[in-house]
Design a protein around this nucleic acid. Structure first.
Lengths: 159, 159
DNA sequence: CTTGAATCTCAAGTCGCTTGAGGTTCCAGA
DNA sequence: TCTGGAACCTCAAGCGACTTGAGATTCAAG
């Protein structure tokens, strides 16, 4: 079923679009099965490996974290499981990407505002007097924790 | 000039919005000056530290990498330098953010397409037959290297 | 004085690779 | 058949920006 393994790691890298050390790394973490070896120890690969690695690379380009790629690859390999699972994973991931996108858009707005302020409000003055930098340095005056600071609301988990 | 240092690291964390270990980390990498210590070895901080740390946190939230934050903080501290430098750094950074944003938007489109295809083209079939996954696994058939593969065009530097 | 929360230090783990050193194998051309 | 250099091998460390954990110490309230 599988062509016998004739590709060197370099050829596989060129055709899959991965780097050579990346392929070795994928093997190491078990995302690729251990390659067959030639007498001297060099790895050899077949078309099946090429397809699998290409799938991995594309998923990575879509931003799936390795563990999700692992699940996706396992899914594609298992004839008993169905395609809905892939869609679900992709949907989850899409949600995360959209969240990141929203955060980045907000970031862009704030940064653009920062640049504009720098240009209009204190253009060229001494940095120490820069009102923009000063504002950035001003502590939050939100609802401070009471005298004995509540120890556990210290965190601000970044998404 | 500086209030004497009365804040514990925990209080500073709560007020600056950083985690306690993060503060110690910032001290370690020299982003914050070494804190004064009490007899037992505990760190103490003053209002100046709070302002500085708040500035750092805000810059981090704006996505500036640490080294840029370091430059920004140094700038805000040095009365001899001017605000233009801050603006330039922010502009550079803004460009990078916009590039990321563009990449992420493309990603979102592709991912959404993936989800749609999964829903319409092979909804519920066996994952092994999923045309979407199959397409993802199909090797590029771009201009393959000639018979004797040109060894050095192996790389595809990801930006 | 006791208790328990907060702090201390140091080390290692995270993620997804990349880079480097130092050595071995392969194969095309002479 | 030999040889030179590209490609390959392994192992270890490095990157960014922290986080997490273990185990010891200190602080402040009761």
């Amino acid at each position: 079923m599988q062509h016998h393994p004739t590709l060197t790691i370099g050829t596989l890298a060129a055709r899959s679009g991965c780097n050579v050390p990346t392929i070795r790394y994928y093997e190491e973490i078990g995302l690729l099965a251990p390659a067959t070896r030639r007498a001297g120890g060099h790895r050899t690969f077949g078309e099946r490996d090429l397809r699998r690695l290409t799938l991995i690379r594309r998923c990575r380009e879509l931003g799936f974290p390795i563990e999700r790629v692992r699940a996706l690859v396992a899914l594609a390999d298992d004839p008993k499981r169905d395609c809905f699972e892939a869609r679900e994973m992709a949907e989850t991931h899409l949600g995360e990407v959209r969240a990141k996108l929203a955060a980045l858009r907000t970031l862009e707005r704030n940064l653009a505002r920062f640049v504009r302020s720098c240009a209009t409000e204190c253009a060229g003055g001494r940095a120490a007097d820069c009102t923009v930098l000063e504002d950035l340095a001003a502590p939050d005056k939100g609802p401070l924790p009471p005298r004995k600071p509540a120890a556990r609301l210290r965190r601000r988990a970044r998404p």
